[in-house]
Design a protein around this nucleic acid. Structure first.
Length: 389
DNA sequence: CAGACGTGGGA
DNA sequence: TTCCCAAGTCT
């Protein structure tokens, strides 16, 4: 039987919304994710309507979840909460320790902003007569004033931690709503429209459950490819389903081409067998992480010459470029790189941080106490294997 | 507004 | 293999 309800979630008054809310929440009760640790009390019980959850755990989770799937976040969240169980612990931590725990999760500005936000919240507390003053914002403006918190993450935190009625608009919600109304334009081009839609649908009586249900629907049923429309509580109301091709929505813009570059990397060893690493500048790509030095190959340049030149320009050292250790390719969101890594022998010059925050000679077994990006972790593995042989 | 900003998983 | 993309924010 074809869908009977036209795509009028926005236009029609409360009747259609009530049906959408109740059908979604009924579905969620039996098919949603109810085992998410930051959405439960410390004793494991589910929070009742209006009951607050630990805002710190929710905040950490929602930042980790930006552009990152739940399954990837879970182990990081557990490690993070073990290392920094509360706001004050995080605020007092060093950026080095913060990046160590975040290492491998990507988008490292999130970690720096979370750290900075914690320090701001702690500093914002008045000096101490009441040591247990609640530092947590209760308004969207309050959360969005923190670094790394936009409207969607702010709404997620307020609805999740405090069960307050604030809408969300992540990728899941954009996709679900775009299909529900068969929207003909890419959501990112008309965000205000989608925000209004999300706000209109939000159940003001159960905002925490509704928002979570919407995300669970997008993550598990209304998936990007091959949505499971047969399992969807909104199938009778879905304009994309009625149109016969839900996979056509949301409409997407053509992505820009990603540039490709070859990077020459030197694993420089001195006479004592120590290896040279540098800490990247605090902002930008992989900001604050450590790495093996190197740089872009220029047109017509041999890779050994690239490595010699980059180490001269960025560290003011002279090296002999030896055998290849490993070559690996790595795709970032906006570029693809091939790292050609050679073992090098240090010849002369005290290393200077000309293009980095700091340079340091370390024993190979000490590398595990520095935060490295994923591509460099593979270089470390190759180095350890080589040294063991 | 368009581009920067990571990584791992799935088809 | 290659491509897509996932619980976005900042500039």
């Amino acid at each position: 039987m074809p869908p009977r309800t036209p795509p009028t979630a926005t236009a029609s008054p409360s009747g259609a919304e009530a049906e959408l809310r109740s059908s979604l929440l009924d579905w969620w009760e039996s098919h949603g994710r109810h085992d998410i640790p930051w959405k439960r009390h410390p004793d494991g019980s589910r929070p009742g309507p209006g009951e607050p959850l630990d805002p710190f755990g929710v905040w950490v989770a929602e930042v980790m979840l930006q552009q990152t799937q739940l399954a990837v976040v879970l182990p990081y969240w557990h490690r993070w909460m073990a290392a920094f169980p509360d706001l004050r612990t995080l605020a007092a931590a060093s950026e080095h320790d913060v990046l160590m725990v975040w290492q491998g999760l990507g988008y490292y500005a999130r970690a720096r902003r979370l750290h900075g936000g914690a320090q701001r919240l702690v500093d914002g507390e008045p000096p101490a007569p009441s040591a247990d003053r609640d530092p947590w914002p209760r308004t969207l403006e309050g959360w969005m004033a923190l670094p790394g918190i936009g409207r969607s993450t702010g709404g997620s935190i307020l609805s999740s931690a405090f069960d307050r009625p604030f809408a969300i608009l992540d990728g899941n919600v954009q996709r679900v709503l775009a299909r529900l109304v068969a929207h003909p334009v890419a959501p990112k081009r008309q965000l205000p429209h989608f925000w209004r839609l999300s706000e209109t649908l939000l159940d003001p009586q159960r905002p925490r459950a509704f928002n979570q249900a919407l995300m669970d629907l997008g993550a598990g049923v209304c998936t990007p490819r091959q949505p499971a429309c047969g399992a969807c509580p909104w199938q009778p109301h879905c304009a994309a389903y009625a149109a016969g091709d839900p996979g056509r929505f949301p409409v997407k813009d053509t992505p820009p081409p990603v540039p490709f570059q070859v990077i020459g990397v030197g694993v420089v060893l001195d006479a004592e067998g120590r290896v040279l690493i540098d800490q990247r500048l605090p902002e930008g790509l992989l900001g604050g992480l450590w790495e093996f030095p190197g740089g872009k190959q220029e047109p017509g340049e041999a890779i050994e010459a690239t490595i010699r030149r980059e180490l001269r320009e960025e560290l003011a050292i002279e090296v002999t470029v030896g055998e290849e250790l490993i070559t690996l390719e790595h795709a970032y969101s906006h570029k693809r790189l091939r790292f050609v890594v050679h073992l090098c022998r240090w010849l002369a010059g005290e290393p200077q941080p000309l293009a980095s925050q700091e340079v340091r000679w370390v024993a190979p077994q000490e590398l595990s106490s520095y935060p490295f990006p994923a591509a460099n972790a593979r270089i470390i593995a190759a180095l350890q294997a080589r040294l063991a042989a």
